[in-house]
């Protein structure tokens, strides 16, 4: 086992005609790792907050999600409204998250909520999101007790509640937030970045939605 390991590592060093990194060479890569340099700046990821929200919505729709911009008080109503408009069942699986518990679900008499992870026959899930990326209309989901990954994947319809304040410019801003929240060396078990519903182009290069993950994605962008 460790023989295999050294076989590969020594093979690499032999090919690179050097021994194990040491001295300045080592210091350089270590500091590059400690302070990761950013790539070329992508202009459209550098907007003012309000424009970021608008850009996020625009790209999310471009990528076949639907978006509703609502106030916090309107979140539960928009969810039931969305389900009704699309003839979807009012049984939902919801992430057990403090963020979502902050909304007044009791106001929706018709809505039946199960809190927990996703199951194979779930029709609709509701989750929060760790962040939204304006550059591409992408949602970022960090796994944890408050956000089971299966809710992002198993149901046919995924309803996501995203606070405007959590919309950032580009990927780099998400990495910053993750490091802040979880520590530089400690990612959540799973970070899903999701851009629109599941899709496949595997039959005749024509896009069909809902390959394995959700067919439909509805994003509630919540004003503060």
């Amino acid at each position: 086992m460790s023989a295999d390991r050294s076989q590969i590592l020594n093979g690499i060093r032999r090919s690179l005609q050097r021994g194990e990194l040491a001295g300045d060479g080592l210091k350089d890569v270590q500091s590059r790792l400690a302070q990761p340099p950013r790539g070329p700046t992508v202009a459209r990821a550098q907007l003012a907050p309000a424009d970021k929200v608008a850009l996020f919505c625009q790209w999310a729709e471009f990528n076949n999600a639907s978006v509703a911009r609502v106030s916090a008080a309107d979140v539960p109503g928009e969810v039931t409204g969305f389900l009704a408009r699309n003839n979807l069942p009012a049984n939902v699986a919801m992430a057990p998250s403090p963020l979502l518990e902050g909304y007044d679900w009791a106001s929706q008499k018709m809505l039946s909520i199960r809190r927990g992870r996703g199951e194979g026959d779930d029709q609709v899930s509701i989750t929060g999101a760790f962040a939204g990326i304006a550059e591409t209309g992408t949602l970022v989901m960090a796994s944890g007790p408050d956000h089971p990954v299966s809710l992002n994947l198993l149901p046919d319809t995924h309803v996501v509640v995203l606070r405007e304040a959590d919309i950032v410019g580009g990927y780099e801003d998400v990495w910053g937030r993750l490091r802040e929240r979880y520590g530089k060396d400690r990612m959540p078990r799973t970070v899903n970045t999701i851009t629109g519903p599941s899709r496949t182009g595997d039959i005749e290069q024509t896009i069909e939605l809902g390959a394995h993950g959700p067919r439909r994605m509805h994003i509630l962008v919540v004003r503060e």
Binding site: W59, P96, P145, R189
Partner: peptide
Amino acid sequence: ATGQESSAYTTLNTGPKRPGDLDG
């Protein structure tokens, strides 16, 4: 690859399921 702005799913997995996780 496909001319998409971003693929639908980009996922980072780090280690096994953590204490308290409901899946993984």
